Simulated assay, not measured.
Amino acid sequence: MPGFIDRRRASRLMEHEGLAALVLCQPETISWASGAFPGVASNWRRAGAAVLIVPADENAPLTAIVGDLQAASFAAASGLEDVRSHRIWVETDRFPLSPDKPKRTPRPAQYLLADSLGLLREALHEKGLAGRIGLDMGFVPAADFAAFQALPVQWIDATRIVERLRAIKQPAEIDRLRRAALHARAGLISLMEQIAPGMTAAEMTRIWASAAQDDATRQGLPPPDSCWAYIAVGGDGFAPGGPLAQGDIIKMDVGCVIAGYSSDGARTAVLGTPAPQAQAIHDALHRSFDAGLALLEPGRSLHDIYRTVATTMWDQGFDTYGRGHFGHGVGASIWSEEWPFIADDSEAILEPNMVMAFETPWYIDGLGGFIIEDQLLITDNGAEVMAPMSRDLRRL
């Protein structure tokens, strides 16, 4: 199947927790696992619009439950033989019109959770999946969970299991993230060549996004699905700001999205000569970044990396600096940040083929926004910066 779920790893994780299966409800997780779009009903982001059953037995087939509009296309894209469908609001037919369709029976305004959960109950029973079943409760709304509880299984929160599975990237996922990071870098390089006094953050965003898209076109590649940017100019540090004046700090945190996979990287520049305090802060962040970067390798605790970066800042005299995390996983999500986080309370360990965004940001009202951020692939021996460029405070 074309999805990215590692069935053997999933089986080991489920066995450790005593689970008979995973039931996935989050739309992007279903797409990741199956390689297929779970249907327009999933756009409401309510549980049960689409469901994917992953048995603990790695050789057992997956079962999908999706809206009837896209059941056939889901089966074709995923390669799954067992795709069951429930009625959603969209009315379709073939010509000549089907005489055996329900008569004078309106479809639901969206979809009926009871219908999809009825199919889930049947599928679990048919496949002998009972007892402890993992559910991605980090997604399932409280308003929907009561309906799940009516099923004759013991639901176990499998949010962390799903996060651990998604954190290890397959080669095609790594390729998407690498391409996205390289397009974003090309956009940053072009932007810094064009920045001029009087520009606003909005103008800079348009220049960057256009250059990132053009980079793909020059290579004969499909353009990114979308481009996002948090560009801040001047003393606020986080808000857009502008117009740009001499001495202003420019924070550029950007990403491109390819097939749902978002890159994340950032740099800081200044128009002309920075204030001494600004240069000192960026230098401290740079030294802290280097201290943490040296530790990004398989087997390393994210807690240890966090403490190293934070302590390096504190030892330079910035002991009020309390940034909550210094990076995160990247992948196919609705945002650029996903588990695991380089945080003080993290219990995660780096593993090969994780893709991480590592960063040292600080937003200082009255001085500006500062950030150094690279996207890295964790390899067998260390970490590869996927779109390298100078980390110095760039003087424009």
Rank of each mutant, 00 (worst) to 15 (best):
D136N: 13
G234R: 15
I371M: 09
A201K: 15
A114M: 06
G255S: 04
L271D: 01
E351H: 02
R104I: 08
G131D: 07
A142F: 14
S190I: 03
L62C: 07
P102C: 08
L182H: 01
S85M: 03
D136A: 03
P99Q: 11
D82L: 05
R12G: 07
A245L: 03
A114S: 15
A56G: 14
G369P: 09
I372Y: 03
A387I: 03
S31P: 00
S262D: 09
L62P: 00
L165E: 00
A146P: 06
G79A: 09
P388D: 04
A150L: 11
P388T: 11
L24P: 00
A269P: 06
R12I: 05
C256D: 03
A209E: 13
M137N: 13
A56E: 13
P223A: 15
F74M: 11
D136E: 10
D319A: 14
Q213V: 10
A202Q: 05
A142P: 08
A343S: 09
D82Y: 02
N381Y: 07
A216F: 05
A216H: 03
I5G: 00
P61H: 07
R206F: 05
L188M: 12
A280R: 04
P388N: 01
L188V: 07
V270R: 00
L285A: 12
P340Y: 01
S190R: 14
E338Q: 15
V153W: 08
V233A: 07
D144H: 15
L135T: 10
E173R: 07
P197C: 03
A269I: 02
P223K: 10
G368I: 03
W228N: 09
S336H: 08
V153G: 12
G368K: 12
Y306K: 09
Y111F: 15
L62I: 03
A10I: 05
R12F: 08
E81W: 00
G265E: 02
L182E: 02
L396K: 02
E173M: 11
K101S: 09
G265I: 13
R12Y: 02
A212H: 10
G118K: 09
A77H: 07
W89S: 07
T92M: 13
L296T: 06
T379I: 14
W228I: 09
Q154M: 05
A60T: 06
G79D: 06
P2L: 05
A143G: 05
L119E: 10
G331Q: 04
H325M: 11
I258Y: 02
F148W: 14
